[in-house]
Simulated scan of single mutants.
Amino acid sequence: MTVKSLVMLLTAGLLLAGCDRIDPNSPLGQRKALFKQMLRTSEDLSGMLRGRLAFDEKRFAEGAARLDALSRQPWQHFPQAERDDRSSARDEIWQRQERFQELVREMEDSTAALLAATTATPLAPARLKAPMQRVEDACEACHQEFRAY
Rank of each mutant, 00 (worst) to 15 (best):
R52G: 07
D56K: 08
P79A: 12
E82C: 07
D91Y: 15
R50M: 07
Q76H: 10
D84L: 09
Q76E: 12
D84C: 09
F60I: 03
W75A: 02
E57R: 07
G63R: 05
R83N: 15
R66P: 10
E62A: 15
A69F: 13
S88E: 15
L49V: 01
W75P: 03
E92T: 14
D68W: 12
R83F: 14
A54L: 04
S71H: 10
D68L: 01
D56M: 07
R86Q: 10
P79Y: 06
R59T: 08
R66T: 08
S88I: 14
Q95T: 14
F78A: 07
L53H: 04
H77Q: 09
L70A: 07
L67A: 00
S71W: 06
S88V: 15
R66I: 01
L70T: 03
R90K: 11
L67R: 07
F60Y: 05
G51C: 09
R90P: 06
D91N: 12
S87R: 00
P74M: 02
R72L: 09
A81Q: 15
A61M: 08
E82I: 11
R59I: 00
A81M: 11
A89L: 06
L53Y: 00
R90F: 08
F78G: 03
E57H: 04
P79S: 00
R59Y: 10
E57D: 12
A65E: 11
S71N: 13
P74T: 04
Q95N: 13
W94A: 12
R50Q: 07
D68V: 00
L67I: 06
F55I: 02
D85W: 08
F60L: 06
E92H: 11
F60K: 02
A81G: 15
D91M: 10
F55N: 05
A89M: 07
D85T: 12
R72H: 11
A81K: 13
Q73W: 01
L53W: 02
A81H: 11
D85F: 12
R50C: 03
F78Q: 02
D84S: 05
E82Y: 00
H77L: 09
Q73N: 09
R86S: 09
F55P: 07
W75C: 05
A54D: 06
R86G: 02
S88N: 13
D56N: 09
R90M: 09
P79G: 09
K58A: 14
S71G: 12
S87G: 07
E92F: 13
E92P: 11
Q73F: 05
L70M: 01
F60H: 06
W94I: 00
A89F: 00
L49M: 03
A81S: 15
P79V: 10
R52I: 03
A61D: 12
D68T: 14
R90H: 02
E92Q: 13
E57M: 03
A64M: 08
S87Y: 07
P74Y: 04
F55K: 03
R50F: 08
K58E: 15
A81N: 14
A64P: 00
